[in-house]
Structure formats: structure tokens, C-alpha cells
Design a protein around this nucleic acid. Structure first.
Lengths: 108, 108
DNA sequence: ATTTTATGCAACCAAATAGTTGCATTTAAA
DNA sequence: TTTAAATGCAACTATTTGGTTGCATAAAAT
């Protein structure tokens, strides 16, 4: 179990956390908590809480340097979300075959 | 805006709702609220609330027949989730190119 | 015609969430 | 060495969430 699936779902369910994550991916380098919070109107402590949830879901890697705590986006846990979605992708156009059959196939 | 992205994220963030959705996809036919709730230990009213959230996110289509309310899974809104995830997919292996460049490209 | 079934509505509850502020501590800068 | 910056910790609050129960109503079955 790499990172709890539910934590990942919960993490990305909040728009502010998605924004933080997006900001970090865009930055493609580590940003400190203060730097991140400057992009938002909510308090630093509010941002810290969001960052911790993202970290606990594995979506942010953290390193400390002196008094600063740096955050780096880690997209890998999103793979679990994509896997979940892809289970249903086959139905986007139309029912080709029941998902039940599909799962039976995988268990053979 | 087909269906509010945040509602979709919030809907699938709850494990019970994911189970309900999965059940409906597996069924590949409409199930009544009572039928659905029989698969769970929580009360019918609890299930009803979850079903409404899924419906409001577009993940369940509902039809009434007599006194029964039937639910059918609709996977289309999941496309929005996949689109969101795919924005970051390119980073799963490694940074090929920054997301910023990628977005610039799309806006040309 | 009576009873049972399927449901909605409303009130209620506990826990989680998203946010705040104040204060202490460590590190860096003047 | 004093001051400023970056952070954590703790307490507090309001709102949302996930769940419950009781009661009313409409439709179906007996």
C-alpha cells in the first residue's frame, strides 16, 4: 500500500489544495511554506494545514533547510486516481461489455 | 460547464459513494434506492443523501417509476477528473518539460 | 379496504473540515 | 547582540459532512 487511496481522494477534493499542488507543479522547484502562502489570501497556518494533508497523501515531498521547510510536488500518487478512473473509462462512449466481465477477465 | 468539477471531486472523495457508484456500474442497470441500501449497513436515509450528491455531480441519473426511484451510473463526469489528472501525468516518470511550457503550448 | 413498501422531509447529532489567532522557538540577518 | 523571519503548537470557531430517527405520503400488494 503505497499511499492510502482515500487520503489522495480527500486531498484533491479541496480546491485550495488543488491550487497549492498546481502551483508547486508549475514551479517545478521547491517552495517554502511562506512562499506558497503568499499566493493565497488565507493565513499561513491555514496553508500549513493543507500542505500537511497533501504531504500525508504523498502529493508533496518536504525537506528542511535551516528555518525553512520546502515543498516539492510529487505527482506519483495521482496514478492511483487515474487507475481508479480508468476502470470506468470504457463506459464513456457506451457499454461495450459489462464491468463485471472485465473484472472476471482480470482475475483469471 | 457541464457539471461542477468540485462537486465531482467531492462526490468521489467518500468511500461509501465510490462503493455505491461501483455497485451501479457493476449492475449496468438501474437499481432502486432500497435495492442499493440493502448492500450497505448504513440507513436508507444515509444512502439517499449519498445518492443525491452523486446525482448532483452527474454521476447518477435518476428516473421514477411508480413509487420507486431508480439510479443508473453515468460515468461521463469522470472524464473531467481524468482530464485533471492527465495534466500531471507527464511527470509520473520524470520531468520532461515544465508544465508551464506545456500550458503555454496549448494557449498558442 | 387495509396493509405493506418505497420514498421524502425534517430535526437532530457527532465528528471532521477549513479556517482563525496568539504565543513560543529556532535560525538568519542587521 | 538585538531584531526579524519562518515555522510549529495549541486553542478556539463556524460550517460541512455523514450519519441517525420519527413521521407523513403515495403507490402497490393483499
Amino acid at each position: 500500500m503505497p499511499h492510502n487511496l482515500n487520503k489522495i481522494f480527500k486531498s484533491i477534493a479541496d480546491p485550495t489544495r488543488r491550487e497549492i499542488f498546481h502551483l508547486l507543479v508549475l514551479a517545478s522547484s521547491a517552495l517554502s511554506i511562506t512562499q506558497i502562502s503568499q499566493h493565497f489570501e488565507i493565513s499561513r497556518q491555514g496553508i500549513t494545514k493543507h500542505i500537511r494533508m497533501l504531504r500525508d497523501a504523498g502529493l508533496i515531498d518536504m525537506t528542511e533547510k535551516g528555518r525553512e521547510h520546502f515543498c516539492l510536488a510529487n505527482v506519483k500518487p495521482l496514478k492511483a486516481i487515474q487507475d481508479w478512473v480508468q476502470l470506468y473509462e470504457r463506459f464513456w462512449d457506451n457499454k461495450l461489455k459489462s464491468l463485471g466481465d472485465h473484472l472476471d477477465q482480470k482475475n483469471k
